[in-house]
Amino acid sequence: MKSGGAIERLVRELSGLPGIGPKTAQRLAFYLLSASPEIGHNLAQAILEARNSIKYCSVCANLTDKDPCRLCDDVNRTPDVICVVQDSKDVMAMEKSHGFRGLYHVLHGALQPSEGIGPDQLSIRQLLKRLEGDKVKEVILATNSNVEGDATAMYLARIIKPLGIKVTRIAHGLPVGSYLEYADQITLAKAMEGRREMQ
């Protein structure tokens, strides 16, 4: 693209974002320039504000603008159940489901033997500190259902269970609305393993 330096820079910066290619970046850049000035200003301001104010919660390690975060500070949540997730995105996904009213802990990754990512690179020490005392009764391991997520869950279960705390793993199985014939064998086996008696 041959045009002024500022536009070129905007396109370049936008195309560095995940999932945005050069064509999309160009479309976004021209939209921002042709739309009302507030749209661009508000977006720039929101990015700057988020960037400058967001930090890690000292309790759950989630991204937050206040410490402790709103979730950890919420008195209406059950403090004796902690749901352990890999990323802050997973907290948002869980919250959207309205299926959990306890507290969270964000690991910021998963154990990855092939990449050499071990327990020290995750916020496991911080989690163990939260489990000191008798306050927490259950830890729900909600890491991803892949090799890395499973390895992380098993590692955490191995170190948390001796503390006398109940450790559970979220269920795996068929997605809602899916067809049995299209499910792969691991998913089907897991679904069969985790079957429940009908009420």
Binding site: V147, Q185, I186
Partner: peptide
């Protein structure tokens, strides 16, 4: 299409860790 998933590997941390080593 999966032929064999070796689901027993995913059920144990030792087995996952050693399997990762064997694969690497």
């Amino acid at each position: 299409e999966g032929i064999e998933a070796f689901s027993g590997l995913r059920a144990d941390l030792d087995r996952i860790s050693y399997a990762s080593y064997l694969a690497e």
